[in-house]
Design a binder for these strands. Structure first.
Length: 283
DNA sequence: CTTCTTGTTACTGA
DNA sequence: ATCAGTAACAAGAA
């Protein structure tokens, strides 16, 4: 499931391959996935690929943008003009190898013969054409990204103090901070040795500081390792897996040993979401 | 068949 | 009005 590190990894690769390419054809395999006037997209040249929170922004020049949120199962797969995956990826599944595939929802074809495929098994993800003003409005719904300098203890602590919900739930609220999802929030809480079930307003300032630093650290590690891949759900645009799953502290490690204290990692539900933590050292 | 999966929003009740 | 908690979205795996 794409969180900030996965989306940022995609952005960096897309920024390497897409700028300068002109959209010559758009095929909608499913009507729900793209909200756009196709004529509005044709002949537009991609200037830059940006990111805010978990949203990618394709800047098409004066007042035209294409935004995408991958939600849980969205993928972007790029095939260059020679029908090869850039970077010599190792396609392992149909949705990388034979495109468009069963879950391909949109196909973009560019002037040089390259193509970008939007796959999304569960149809929660979206792509939308937007003016600059509409982009601003969309982005205004999200708080600063967790890795941005604006997210300081002075910013975060007062927000935690007036919330009684579990700290994990508050950290996942994109109106508090953007970019964290279930994987990295579980790991950040383990690194900071704080229980995900603690009411947010029960954290001391020192604990909030520890948690903030741990969150930034875990997100940075995720970015440096090209994100997290479980079951091939998230892959880079070449079909390549990320590497953070090998470093995960608690996520998807139920019954395994806590790397911090040697305790046994447990999985419980919190706000309807799977929550991994070490009951021995996360207090 | 039921249950589980997740990012975000909509809804409900306090 | 604001906050907390749950349902919903969709499709497939177990």
């Amino acid at each position: 499931m794409p969180e900030l590190p996965e989306v940022e990894t995609l952005r960096r690769r897309l920024q390497e391959v897409l700028p300068g390419k002109t959209i010559v054809q758009v095929t909608q395999h499913h009507p729900k996935s793209l909200q756009a006037d196709l004529a509005w997209l044709y002949d537009q040249t991609i200037k830059e690929v940006k990111r805010k929170a978990k949203i990618l922004q394709f800047d098409l020049g004066p007042d035209k943008n294409l935004l995408t949120h991958l939600k849980m199962t969205g993928q972007l797969i790029f095939i260059d003009s020679n029908q090869n995956r850039v970077g010599g990826g190792h396609p392992t599944a149909d949705w990388v190898q034979n495109l468009p595939a069963k879950h391909t929802r949109i196909t973009y074809s560019f002037d040089d013969g390259s193509q970008l495929f939007f796959n999304d098994q569960r149809l929660f993800g979206w792509m939308k054409a937007m003016t600059d003003a509409e982009v601003d409005q969309e982005f205004s719904k999200y708080a600063h990204d967790i890795d941005q300098p604006e997210v300081t203890l002075e910013y975060l602590y007062p927000l935690l103090q007036r919330r009684r919900s579990a700290i994990k739930v508050v950290l996942l609220d994109p109106k508090v901070v953007s970019g964290l999802g279930n994987i990295y929030v579980c790991d950040a809480l383990n690194l900071a040795q704080i229980s995900p079930f603690r009411p947010a307003n029960s954290l001391s300032q020192a604990e909030a500081g520890r948690l903030l630093e741990a969150s930034k650290r875990v997100i940075q590690l995720g970015v440096e390792n090209n994100g997290t891949t479980f079951d091939g759900s998230y892959v880079n645009i070449d079909g390549l897996a990320g590497g953070y799953q090998n470093l995960a502290l608690v996520y998807a490690r139920e019954g395994e040993t806590c790397k911090n204290c040697g305790g046994t990692i447990q999985k419980e539900k919190l706000a309807g979401r799977g929550t991994y933590y070490c009951p021995n050292c996360q207090l």
